[in-house]
Design a protein around this nucleic acid. Structure first.
Length: 381
DNA sequence: GGCGTCTCAACGTGATCTTC
DNA sequence: GAAGATCACGTTGAGACGCC
């Protein structure tokens, strides 16, 4: 028995994406397979359905059933983001973390589709998402993103928005530490040779020379330099006692004569700070601002110029890596960690009350001899 | 002690605007 | 015109804490 479908219609307009299939329906071939979107008699409804489903079909996923009941992905993301808005407003999280969550929500809505029922997501869906992320993101970033995606979907279960936890599958986990280590090794060492370090210091502007010497001498990073205040700097005694801004970990370090001299050479040229709260900062940009601010890192940018002159690659932070590596050769890792401001919460650090200054001096002298070797006088017998 | 979860901060870059 | 500031976005490293 054949149904009469009438005369096969032509496209209502040239850009219309579907074609009239002999079965009486509007059709489109996607990924090598024919999909049907409605009868000839209602081309607008067929087009609307096509537009709803095309992204899912192109991605090789099943489009959601509009009649299906359950929490939709966009609904979950809205509620989750409202919670994060609140956390941001009361200071529980910072702006960058809030932004990370918003972008994670945007990513899963874009990939899975806004109308996807959360409880319909399966391990295979997450595997596809991971493969998609792997096309553009590094291992570390994929791990962090996977983390946040799991947080969003865990939130749905914790809040009672879905009856069962989402199954992510065995593949949708942070990359193992071994893989992260392999990727790091593949990139090669991120430190300067002694010739590169000397050339960078030699070619630097006065403030950058002082900052580079602080990095080589004390393992300072960009923000350490930008946050250093006179309160924590004893040029006469030759010590700094700046706690690490990132962690608040206490640390102190003896300064080389070269470092003291570079800071003293810079200070007469130090511009006046624009803002009252920056009065005590040692390093100020030529426009009177602090070097590292919310969306600006003038240390990185100024270093990039010097790096160009010196004909080397790397970042300012590599000098910190260099200190850690060369300092480690002194065989007193505890003293190196203290100077670096690393918090290693072991029982030993719990019981250790202090580290003698001679141990810190020994480490920085070791690095200094690497950078500025003293000619040895050999006394012949 | 090891690992997973959650969070935060630092680093890096490019386009565009502003100031000197 | 050059240098620095601003904005936006992406990437990476690491600490705190809880659970097994």
């Amino acid at each position: 028995m054949s149904k009469s479908k009438g005369e096969k219609p032509s496209k209502p307009y040239p850009e219309f994406p579907l074609f009239a299939h002999a079965s009486g329906r509007w059709c489109k071939k996607i990924n090598g397979k024919f999909h049907y979107f409605g009868p000839w008699r209602d081309h607008e409804a067929a087009l609307a359905r096509y537009l709803e489903q095309v992204d899912y079909l192109k991605a090789g996923r099943k489009p959601p059933n509009p009649e299906a009941k359950g929490l939709r992905l966009w609904g979950l993301c809205n509620v989750f983001c409202e919670t994060q808005d609140y956390k941001l407003s009361v200071g529980e999280i910072v702006r960058s973390t809030h932004q990370d969550y918003v972008e994670t929500c945007e990513r899963i809505v874009k990939f899975f589709g806004r109308d996807t029922i959360v409880e319909h997501l399966q391990a295979a869906d997450f595997q596809q998402l991971r493969e998609e992320m792997a096309k553009t993101l590094g291992l570390r970033t994929i791990g962090n993103e996977i983390n946040r995606i799991r947080i969003v979907l865990k939130y749905a279960y914790d809040e009672g928005l879905i009856a069962h936890p989402v199954r992510f599958g065995n593949q949708f986990k942070r990359p193992p530490k071994s893989a992260l280590r392999r990727q790091k090794q593949a990139k090669g060492p991120q430190m300067f040779t002694v010739e590169q370090a000397r050339e960078l210091i030699r070619r630097a502007t006065p403030p950058m020379r002082a900052m580079l010497l602080l990095a080589a001498n004390c393992g300072f990073g960009n923000n350490d330099c930008a946050s250093l205040t006179f309160q924590y700097l004893d040029l006469k005694g030759g010590w700094h006692t700046l706690p690490r801004p990132k962690t608040g970990i206490e640390r102190r370090c003896p300064l080389w004569p070269e470092t003291v001299a570079a800071i003293e050479a810079y200070l007469p040229r130090r511009p006046n700070p624009q803002h009252e709260e920056d009065q005590d900062l040692v390093f100020i940009t030529k426009y009177g601002l602090r070097y590292v601010r919310d969306s600006e890192n003038a240390v990185s940018k100024e270093f990039a110029k010097i790096r160009g002159f010196a004909g080397t690659k790397g970042t300012f932070y590599w000098m910190r890596h260099t200190f850690e590596t060369i300092g480690g050769e002194s065989r007193d890792q505890v003293a190196v960690d203290h100077i670096m401001g690393h918090a290693k919460e072991t029982m030993a650090t719990e019981y250790r009350e202090w580290i003698g200054p001679e141990r810190l001096e020994s480490v920085v002298s070791f690095v200094r001899e690497w950078l500025y070797p003293v000619p040895r006088i050999v006394v012949l017998p």
